[in-house]
Every structure is written in C-alpha cells, then in structure tokens.
Design a protein around this nucleic acid. Structure first.
Lengths: 158, 158
DNA sequence: GCTTGACCTTCCTATTGTAGGAACCTGTAA
DNA sequence: TTACAGGTTCCTACAATAGGAAGGTCAAGC
C-alpha cells in the first residue's frame, strides 16, 4: 500500500517520471529503493517531497533554491529567517526579470501601435532597428582607432 | 578602411566576437570574407546587420524572429503588416511571460510578508509548500487504482 | 504457463543563447 | 626577430525539460 512505481509517484505528485529520475540523478532527492529488476519504488513520504518540489518549481524557485528549502523543511530547528531570505531573494530576481521584460515590451508596443500594418513598407519598428544601426556608425567612429587594422590585405577586396 | 577584423566588428556593433561566429554558424548572417590565413573580415554593412541583430536581441526577439525581420529589412517590397505581426506576436509572448512571473511573485511576496523571519521555525512559506504536499494525499487517493501495483514484492519492504 | 501491452530501465539528443577554455596559428609593433 | 594581442576551431557548460530508441519487466487474461 505504501509503495508505488515511478509512474504512480508521478501521477500522485504531478512530477513527470522523467523529472523524478532527473532529480535523483542530480541529488535533489535521495536514490529510490529498487526491486530486483531495477524498478524504483516510492513511499508516500517520497511523494510528499516530490509535491514540495513541484510547488517550489511552480513558484519559480530554482532547483538549487529548492534544495536549500528542502533542507530547511527537514530541519525542525530551522530559523524562519533563512526561509524568508530564500523567498525574498527569489522575489527580487522575479521582479528584476519582470522589469527586464517590461523594458522590452514598452518600446515594442509603442512601435507596433504606430505601425500602419498595411501593404506599404513604411514601418516604425524597422525604423527603430535601423536607427540603432545608424547610431552604430557614430559609435564606430568614436572607437579609438588604436592602430587601425582596417587596410585591405591579401584576399580581402573590401 | 571599410574592412575590419571580428574583434573590431564586435566593438563597433556591440555583438561579442563569439556571438558573431555563432550567428554565422547558424546562418543568421552570411559567411564572412576570409583572408588567406582564415581571419574573418567585415565591412561596415556587416556591422549594420550586427547592430540590427543586437537591437533585436535587446528587445527580446528570438533569433528566429530576427532572421525573419532581417529578411523583411532587406526586402524593399515588404508589407509593414508582416513586420507588425512579428512584433505583436513577440509582445504577446512577453506579456504572457510577465503574467507567469507575476503569478509566482504574488504568492511569494504575500507569504514572505507574513513570515516573521526570526529564529523560530514557524513559517507561512514552508506551510504553503507543505500545504501542497498535504493536498497531494487527496489527489493520490483519487487516482483510480486501475490494478494497484502497490503490493510488496521481492526486495521491496515497503 | 504464455502472450500481450503497459510500464520500467538506461542512454542519447535537443532545446535557447551565451560564455569559458584549450590548443594552436597569425599580424604587427618595437 | 620576438613578443603579444588577437585570430582560428572545437569542446564544454549552463537550467530544466522533453523526446526517442533499445531493451527488460510486470500483471492480466486466456
């Protein structure tokens, strides 16, 4: 009753069998008990761990963070401050990632809003990409010429 | 004057030399002209292309999307509608990704807010992860037993 | 008992884009 | 001529997941 195959553990935990094997291989979970022919067998407590991992992954925690959270989970003498730090670090990373994506989204939405989107070739989106191309010429000129290795040489026609 | 090494093209475009080689290897940019000893040489127009790519990457476009944008850039008979579609698809993907991250951030911030973060072990964050563990037991029971391969067998003590 | 089909095993590959390093060759300034 | 910066290719890693191939096993039904 308390032992099941990897497939059943997968169903019970929501973690694909493939991932369970992977988590074992990287040491996130201990090596499973095997029967004589090599099949892994899992107890309910193993499924609990997998569920914990799944929830952590759903919240976007890295495998590494989950490894630390699991250790704290098992440690009855843990300080909640340690758990909180992991969570706050992750929250900061999430906020940073969101900010990055929004910094991309802003210009794109603005440009797309101003694009006719018709049969003509005129397009502020292209203009933006090309603007940056044009800007590069200035920057290229401002690059200190050091020793201008820009002469034509054998095989290169320029 | 119009020809430079990969390092100079990297400086002028903001695309690392390593990435320039990579972009060439996957066909994003054409194969560079080489001198007799195999050195790649780049013209200003190549740097323009690299700048275009860099801007596209900064806006979060995938390499594949940039490949299509480059083709449209070169096509003077392009329809701005095609450019716009690529941009709008990307905007949708960005918004979706932002929503995913916010769906993670919400619970984490809430839980962290309610965590004392002191020396005691009590922690709503852990409780959340464990809640989902508890929930798994119900779901496990609801899994149709089909042919309950949960009996003890050779080598498995349960 | 035997067949069958679902399920298990390991191992390899791909994804996405970037980066590091090793081993070796080349260009150029001094 | 000699350094040394900078070029070349090739291999590896990242992070987490997923697909497939080749082959062995379990359990049910006959």
């Amino acid at each position: 009753m308390t032992s099941m195959t990897i497939g059943d553990a997968a169903k019970a935990s929501g973690v694909p069998a493939k991932m369970i094997r992977y988590y074992e291989s990287i040491g996130l979970i201990p090596k499973a008990v095997r029967n004589d022919s090599g099949y892994r067998y899992y107890a309910i407590t193993d499924v609990h761990t997998l569920r914990f991992i799944r929830r952590g992954r759903d919240l976007g925690f890295s495998i590494d963070a989950i490894m630390r959270l699991l250790a704290l989970w098992r440690d009855h003498h843990r300080a909640s401050a340690d758990v909180k730090r992991i969570a706050l670090d992750h929250a900061a990373a999430l906020r940073s990632k969101i900010a990055d994506l929004e910094a991309m989204l802003g210009p794109i939405e603005y440009l797309a809003d101003h694009c006719q989107g018709d049969h003509r070739s005129d397009c502020p989106i292209m203009d933006d990409l090309a603007d940056h191309v044009a800007r590069s010429e200035h920057e290229a000129r401002e690059t200190r010429p050091r020793h201008t290795k820009t002469t034509q040489r054998r095989g290169v026609s320029t």
